[in-house]
Computed example of a mutant assay.
Amino acid sequence: MSHPGQPLRFAPTPQEIETLALEALSRLPDPFNAHLSDVVLFVEEFAPADILKEMEIDDPFGLTGLYSGRPVGQEAQTGDVPPTVHLFRRPLLDEWVETGVPLDALITHVVVHEIGHHFGLSDIDMHVLEDMVAS
């Protein structure tokens, strides 16, 4: 229930999640941002069942993001689709509520981690990059 003078607040929409993700991407420093023009961003409610099965994840809330594509530097093959980052809205919102981490920081964390796969970064490198783009 809202209080007088305060608007009702609903869960962030896929568009709001996308906006936060794009803002996180825009903060990536050179040379990373120069290699992101071909990366496609999707916001979906959950990961598809076949992806969860392939990754041996039983709980659909267990996957917040996914990178698909060849890392930078690997030779492209005929028929390759553009690299993609998928963010899964409901698991992100669940983690947001459970952890109390600000939503923009959580989305930045997931986006940087998935983009880190695009660049073939180690987990340590991803944490360094995340610290660089923290809002």
Rank of each mutant, 00 (worst) to 15 (best):
T99D: 08
V81C: 03
S68A: 10
H113S: 07
V97C: 04
V111D: 07
E114P: 03
D80H: 02
D59Q: 04
H127N: 07
F119C: 08
E95N: 09
D58R: 09
G116L: 03
I57W: 01
L129A: 10
H109Q: 14
P91W: 00
D125G: 10
L92E: 04
Q77I: 00
G100P: 12
R90K: 11
V97N: 09
E54A: 15
D125C: 07
E95G: 03
T78Y: 05
A76G: 04
D94K: 11
L87A: 07
V111M: 14
R70Q: 14
V97F: 13
M126F: 02
A105P: 00
G120L: 06
V111I: 08
H118D: 11
P71T: 15
G116S: 02
T78M: 02
D123H: 11
I57A: 03
I115D: 08
T84D: 01
H118E: 10
G116M: 01
L63Q: 04
P82C: 00
M55F: 14
G62Q: 05
Q77H: 01
T64K: 14
F61V: 04
D94T: 10
E98Q: 15
V85F: 00
P83F: 05
E114W: 01
D125T: 07
P91F: 01
R89G: 02
V85A: 00
V128M: 13
L66V: 12
H86W: 06
S122Q: 01
P91E: 00
Q74W: 12
L106T: 12
L87N: 11
D125H: 13
Y67F: 15
M126K: 15
T108K: 09
L106M: 11
E95Q: 14
P60E: 07
G100A: 06
V72G: 07
Q77S: 05
P60T: 11
T64W: 11
G73V: 01
F119A: 06
T64Y: 14
T84Q: 12
E75Q: 12
P102W: 02
T84M: 03
L121E: 10
L93G: 00
D80K: 02
P82N: 03
V101F: 06
G62D: 09
S122G: 06
D104N: 09
E54M: 09
S68F: 13
E98A: 14
R70S: 15
V111Y: 04
I57Q: 01
P60C: 09
E98N: 15
R89K: 07
V101H: 03
T108N: 11
H113Q: 06
H109R: 13
E56A: 05
H113N: 08
P102K: 02
L103D: 02
D104Q: 07
E54G: 02
G116N: 00
F88I: 05
D104C: 06
G100R: 09
D80R: 00
V112R: 07
L103C: 03
W96L: 10
D123W: 02
F61I: 05
E54T: 05
V128F: 15
G62I: 07
V110G: 06
E95H: 14
G62R: 02
K53W: 03
G73H: 09
T108I: 05
L121H: 09
V101Y: 04
P83W: 08
Q77Y: 00
L121R: 08
